[in-house]
Write a protein that binds this DNA or RNA. Sequence first.
DNA 1: ATTTCTTATTGATTTTTATCAATGCCATTT
DNA 2: AAATGGCATTGATAAAAATCAATAAGAAAT
Lengths: 192, 192
Amino acid sequence: MYDLFFLDFNSKVPLTQEEETVIKQYLTPKKLRKKQYLLQEGDVCKSIAFIEKGALKAYSVDDKGNEHIIQFGVERWLISDLYSFLTGEPATYNIDAIEDSELLLISKTAHEELLQKVPKYETYTRMNITGAFISMQRRLTSIISSPLEERYTNFAASYPNIVQRVPQHMIASYMGLTPETLSRVRQKMIRK
Amino acid sequence: MYDLFFLDFNSKVPLTQEEETVIKQYLTPKKLRKKQYLLQEGDVCKSIAFIEKGALKAYSVDDKGNEHIIQFGVERWLISDLYSFLTGEPATYNIDAIEDSELLLISKTAHEELLQKVPKYETYTRMNITGAFISMQRRLTSIISSPLEERYTNFAASYPNIVQRVPQHMIASYMGLTPETLSRVRQKMIRK
DNA sequence: ATTTCTTATTGATTTTTATCAATGCCATTT
DNA sequence: AAATGGCATTGATAAAAATCAATAAGAAAT
């Protein structure tokens, strides 16, 4: 249940056995069935979730009821509404499970105590957020500067596992397109 | 010359006098004239820059020679090609000065030694990157989910100083639009 | 087994945005 | 004072994407 988390942690910041034991005490396992919410817009985000198994999406919903996916999460990734988590403000995103999932939750108090007590946890956090920043910057660059086909190609090349596991209309949402448009872009590409 | 930097640092993580002295030794002041490069695509990004004065932009250039601005930076902000800085890979962004600017540079070795020697520097870094992540996430959400007018309104409300200081065609670039389109969007809004 | 739901595709049409081209303004330089 | 370059606006047209609507295939539920 904790395997992937510590695999990931150790790959970034090697831990002693004692440190692992301390950290483990702050983690709360949670299982989520497909379509269940981890977080609903308007609630305060109480935790950061490490994904041991499964797939989730974070998204906002506009006036017309359309979902706009801001982030996918699969094994070894973290998912959260970080702004709500850190400030205690109501969440602007929803998070739910695309597949049955197994998570490790880090609550606000756990997060704060870990930052205090385990210096390596701060390093781990810094590395995670840095990685997330860089990949989001890539995504943004691609959106503002690349033609559609290239954007899809890039995405598919960067996240082949997501393209396989997730329905196309969600990919379209993630790219800021309608499902119809993405379908047509793919047809064009296939014809080549 | 160092005032803003330590003002910002102390507001996030209070420092002792000794710590300030240590950190100061790792900072290199640099002045940049309008239009001068801090970084050119293809070069390795050698530093993170804290902006004491002025304004800069980070951008990529596409096949047709169009600039796509990924980030603006003004006083109290950091600017860099973080991926290049951290990995040593060639930069994919250019960074240059929109106005005459004064910077404090943190080199790679300075960054690494500071992370080692001054725990508060790691905290400061973590807070900075977290803030950058959250605002970029907002920007991305706005791009994939809001109509154009709203996006411009949001941007202008969030960064009034940038709207004032920076030519409109750069704002358009930042929003992923042509200057003509942004001009028309603004006309529509004014008429209301 | 059949019904329901989700998903993907396709076509016709409208809306949005980009492109191309021209103009005028203002600030700076000469 | 005239010339230059950077910038914003406007118009006409083309291209891209959204919308609306219909169909069909597959998976899941009853």
